[in-house]
Every structure is written in structure tokens, then in C-alpha cells.
Design a protein around this nucleic acid. Structure first.
Lengths: 202, 202, 202, 202
DNA sequence: CATGAATGAGCTTTCATTCAT
DNA sequence: AATGAATGAAAGCTCATTCAT
């Protein structure tokens, strides 16, 4: 990597960690500069404004969420397992995603935090990410419907809510509220898909 | 209400709405003053500092969450229905809570937003609120265990995660991500307790 | 004393003590109100403005410095002892003054502190007080000249400087810089007039 | 001098003059910025806080008072003249000091003003400066004792009081109270040491 | 007689940003 | 490729002061 590329990346990493910890508005460019060991001027050289620095983080992360390897992997998983039990598909999908989440926890925190108060990030997420998540979730839901008899009141929306509720909770609040959690991605995925398919009771 | 009490309350209301919309750090006392139609000096007269203004909101809301009527109602519901199906208990609890959430959506947003970045709020919530939520949820979980045969991997923690994942999602993200949702508290409660008990499939 | 008179006096006393400790600019009307156990409004009712409150203190103290009993006492002392050794006159004068200073240390501190930065107080002091002090000191100096042979370079100005240098130092800095000083007014007066007349050596 | 060094120095100079004139609490950073022809932000860039700006002035001046050239000069004077009349030593010391005082009148005013109300400055001055002044003054007093017969009541403390009383008076009040004083350092030193040794009378 | 309620103006301080070097 | 030097604008907060009650 070129030196300038390295510097750019360092700024990005530091910023992600700081925003994840303190929030965007409470993270000053001075602090970023100090921790990234560059001058404030350098930050503005590379990213024009604090806002564009955030934008870069948000967009980069969102792109990663569904890009290249990521997107392919997901559709591969769905296609490969078409014939199989949808519970297994869900479990496999979740496992792949949880691995991603683990690696990008701070970036995702930044996005979710900002989404709560930043209209642009809201729209961007809704259009670029949520729409895809809805699509995948709906696809899965259809497959399930084909194989199982569902309660009539349960629709795609409630399916999403259960699924993404747990995911968002895991990313945002679990570390804060729960002590001593040591579930690997596989275990997490198994338990969640289990609950979704059968509830907690037999 | 005395005039001063009115002013204090107005400041509080305006602040809650502003912080829910923009976040704490991005809400200036100047803006609060303008919208509450008082001078900045008045805000500081009543609340000493911006930080204490936030603290007041957080504590007041947390107290409401489990105080007096609230706490009694919850234990009443649990006691009254001891003999009944735990699914019904859960449903009744949820319905009561969703009514509360609807009335206090912005205050809750303030708390959850701050919890993501503010250590004090994190600890306060964990000790004062989350511990009680865990207790209730565990109590319920035990009742369920007594009446139904549960999968062995499912424990109180996964139960919480499902339940509160959906609740947090509803409060924080639903309005942003989902269009045209028109579920009343009763409907919400029914669907969620349904899913938790039976999953989405028969 | 009437109640209102009592309140007025309490405000004055508190203010003097506070200003002596912190300085005028660093003493807030809020603090005065708190310590005097009245509302800020009450202060402004009696003294119109913070500035006039200071003015009251300054003028009252200055008046005390040379008024009534005070002024009479001084000229009495001078007249009574005209025939005596000027050293004794000086000693007697000083003793009387040191007793006054002890009783009004804080008020005097307020005046001297303010004199360093406040043009009005400077002029007021110069015209109302210093001029009288110069007159007395000059009178004394003349008496001394009549009885003793003075070095030719020593004039009224140097006499003043020695005398009031020690006095000002005593009022302003002695407490701060010197530990364990336990000289009563009589002792102080004796030593100072001693030094002035004979220097420190025989 | 580098540009930044120049700016820093300018801020310092302006601040000293302003505080000497108005007092610390009545000097706003706004005013300093205007007179130093920089922005307020620049002041805080270099000095972190208004308090630290004052601290810089106080410490720098105190260091100057006894550092390098200064301290050496003083002990040189004392050593060189050991055999001579202590009156001459005192005179020489005073002359050297009065030259310093003339050059640093405003800085010294700042220190003395602050000393009246600021505990930290009080302690700092007492420990760093006054202790040394006492030492020098005591050393001199001993020399005098060896050569002259002193009145028994006169001790080091009264010696200090006379000496530093006049010095403090000169720095703080003379300009304010006395008109048309045109004594150079040499003259001042001569007169003061004269008075101290012989009083005003033969 | 006294104060509760309110504030405009000003304070110190921090922020994101610029630009010459 | 990077930064030292500087800043306008805005932040949180305090102050002396007013006035209706």
C-alpha cells in the first residue's frame, strides 16, 4: 500500500472506532487527528469535510454489506440450498452474516447510530441496504411458506422484525447489557433460526 | 400547575423531542431555548447544565418505566394470570408495555440513543432497568418451562434476545425503515407472543 | 435597628468579606445573595447596582477613616503632644490607626485592591484620603524638622513612603506572606516609629 | 524569532498590560484578542485556558525575578562587597532591583494584584519568591548586625517589613498616588538604604 | 418588604475548516 | 505528501439586572 493510502486508511479506522464509542457529533477532528497521528489539515486534505468522512465510512460499509464476495455468497447460499430445508438455509445465511458482523461491528455501530438521527443515512440505508434485506428475507419467507403451513397472521413484516430485531440487538446492545456471552457465529445462527422456526417451545 | 413548573416542563418536552430527532450532542441549548420560547439563561436556571438536563430526562423516563402504576401493573398481570397459559401472560404484558412505549416513544429514543455512547446511561440502564427486565423475563421463562417442553438449547438469554430485540427494533428503527405500519398494541402483542411460542410455522 | 436596616447591613458585610477574599470582579451578586440569605432582587432594591454597592463600601470606609471620632482623635493627639518628642506623637498616632486597621482590615483590603485597577476609586482615594494623609504626615515631618537635624535628602515624600509603605504592607501582604505574627498595635507602633527615627542601627 | 513565537509573545505582552490595568477577572479574552490582533481561538491554541495564560505570566515573571543573570547578580553583589559597609551592599542591591522593577512593572503588578485574591499565586509566590527574598534579607541583616550595634527589638522581620514595604509601595501605589516623581534607581536606592540605616534623623 | 421568574449581553472555550508553505 | 498557523462561528454557561407580584 502507498504511504498516502496508508494514512487515509488509518484516519478511517481511527474515526470508525471513535464514532462507535462516542458518536459522530461528539467526535472532534482534533481527536481523530491525535489518535491517527496526523495533523487535522491532513484529514481535510483527504476527506474534504467531517461530513464527507462520515459519508465515506457509511457508504464503504454499506457497500461491503452486499458487495462482491458478500452478495455472491448470499445468493450462492440461497441457490445451492434451494432444495433443502429452509431452516438450514436461514441458519447458513445467518452464520455467514454473523461472521461479517463480528469483523465489522464498529462500522455497523456507526451506521446504526447515525441512522437514528441522520436523514441522509436513513434514506441511504433504506434504499441501498434495507430494500435488499427485505428482498432476501421475503424470498426466504416465500420458500418457507411453500414448505410449511404458516399461521395466517404471520407475514413477511413480522418475519423481518423477529429476524432483524435479534440481529440489531446483537450488534448494538448485547455487549452493553449482557455479560459473559460466548456464542460463536454458528451457535448464534443455529439458535436464532431454531427460534424462528419453532418458537421456544416444541 | 405553577408558572415555573410549566416552564420547566416545556423545556423538558422540547428537549426530548429535539434530542430524539437530532441526538443529544447535535442539539444546542440555543435551539432548545428558541423552541421552548424561553431564554437560554432560563434553561440553565432550572437544569444547571446541559448534561443535567439530559440526566433529568433519562432518570425521569427510567423511573416511569417501572414505577408506581407501571410496576404494579406488571406484577398484577403476572400474578392474576399465574394459572393461565403463559402465552396469554406474555401477550397481556406486551400489550400493556406497547401502550406505554407509544406514549413515550421519544423519551425512550433518547435513552436508547444515549445508551449507545454514554457510559453513565449504560450503567444506569443496566442496573436500574435491564436488571428488572431480566427478572421479569426470567420469571416468565420459568413459568413457560413448567408448562411446556422446551428445546434444551433455548435459555433465558435467547428468550430475552428474541423478545427485547423485537421491542427495541420497534421503538428505534421501525418508523424509519418500514412504511405504512398500522398495528395497534393489541395486534403487536399477539403477533410477538405468537412467534415466540410457536415460531412462525406450525 | 429596623429589619430593613439589618438586611442592608448584612448585605454590606457579606459583600466586604467576599470582595476582600475574591476581588470585586470575581464576586457575583448571586454569591452575595446566597451568603447574605436574601434574594438577588433584594440587593438591587437597596443598592441599585453592583457598582453602587462597591461605591457604598468604598465611601463608607473612607469616611470612617477620617471622620468624626477618627479625625478628631488624630488632631487631638497631634495637638496634645505638640510639645513632646515627635517620635512619641508618631507612635501614638500609629497605635490609634493600627487599632482602626485591625477592626476594618477587610474593608481596607477592598479599597486597596480596587485602587489598583479602578480609576474612580483611585481619584476618590487620592483626593479624599491621601491628601489628608499627606497633610498629617507633612505636619509631623515639619515638627520633626524643627526638633532634629535631618539629612538633607530626606523630604516629606520619603517620609511618607517609609511610613505608608509599612502600613500598606501590613494591611495587604503581611497575613499572606508572614507566619506567626503576633504583634499588638502598641508594639507595631513602637517598632515602626523607632525605625523611622533611628533606622535599624544606633 | 519564529512567527508563532512572535504571536505567542504578543499575546503575552498585551495580556500583561491589560491585566495590570484592569485586573485579571475584568480582562476578557475578547479584548486580549482584539488588542493583540489575533483571534480568540489563537489565544486558546497557545495557552489552553485563560487561567493558564495567567499562570504563564506569573511563573515566567517569578522565574525572571531570581533566575540566571538575576540571581547571579544578586549573590555577586553580596559577595563582592562582603568587606564593605552593609549600607553600600544594600544600596547596590536595591539599585539593581529597581532597574529590574522598572522594566517589569506591569508583570509585577499582575503578580501582586493576583496575590491578593488567588491562593495558588499566594502559595507560589511565598514558596518560590518570598522565601528567597527572606533569605537574602536575613543574610544582609546578619552582616549589619556584625558591624553595627542594633536596637534589640529590631529583628529580621521588621527589617523586611521596612524594606519590602517601601518596595511594594513603589511598585503598586506610587504611580497612582504621587505626582511628579522623578527619582532614578540610583537615587531611590540611596535614599532607602539611608533611611533604613539611620532613620530619617541623624 | 421581599422575591420568584426571567433575560440580554457577555463570557470562556471548542469546533470544523482554510491556506501558505 | 503533510502540516503549522490561524480563524469565524457557534457552543455551553454566567452575569448583573428588571419587574410583576
Amino acid at each position: 500500500m502507498k504511504k498516502s493510502e496508508k494514512t487515509k486508511q488509518k484516519i478511517l479506522t481511527v474515526t470508525i472506532n471513535l464514532i462507535a464509542k462516542r458518536g459522530y457529533a461528539s467526535t472532534s477532528t482534533r481527536e481523530i487527528a491525535e489518535q491517527a497521528d496526523v495533523s487535522e489539515a491532513t484529514i481535510f486534505k483527504y476527506y474534504k469535510s467531517k461530513d464527507k468522512l462520515l459519508k465515506t465510512i457509511v457508504i464503504q460499509t454499506m457497500e461491503k454489506l452486499f458487495k462482491s464476495s458478500s452478495e455472491k455468497k448470499l445468493s450462492e447460499i440461497i441457490n445451492k440450498n434451494k432444495s433443502k430445508n429452509p431452516e438450514i438455509i436461514l441458519k447458513t445465511l445467518l452464520e455467514e452474516r454473523f461472521n461479517f458482523f463480528d469483523e465489522h461491528k464498529n462500522e455497523l455501530k456507526v451506521i446504526f447510530q447515525e441512522m437514528l438521527i441522520n436523514k441522509k443515512v436513513q434514506n441511504y440505508f433504506k434504499e441501498e441496504i434495507w430494500s435488499k434485506m427485505v428482498k432476501i428475507s421475503d424470498g426466504l419467507f416465500k420458500q418457507i411458506k411453500n414448505k410449511c403451513t404458516l399461521k395466517e397472521e404471520i407475514d413477511g413484516y413480522m418475519f423481518r422484525k423477529t429476524l432483524f430485531g435479534m440481529i440489531f440487538f446483537t450488534i448494538l446492545f448485547e455487549n452493553i447489557l449482557e455479560d459473559n456471552i460466548n456464542l460463536d457465529s454458528n451457535k448464534q445462527a443455529t439458535l436464532i433460526s431454531n427460534i424462528i422456526f419453532d418458537g421456544i417451545s416444541f
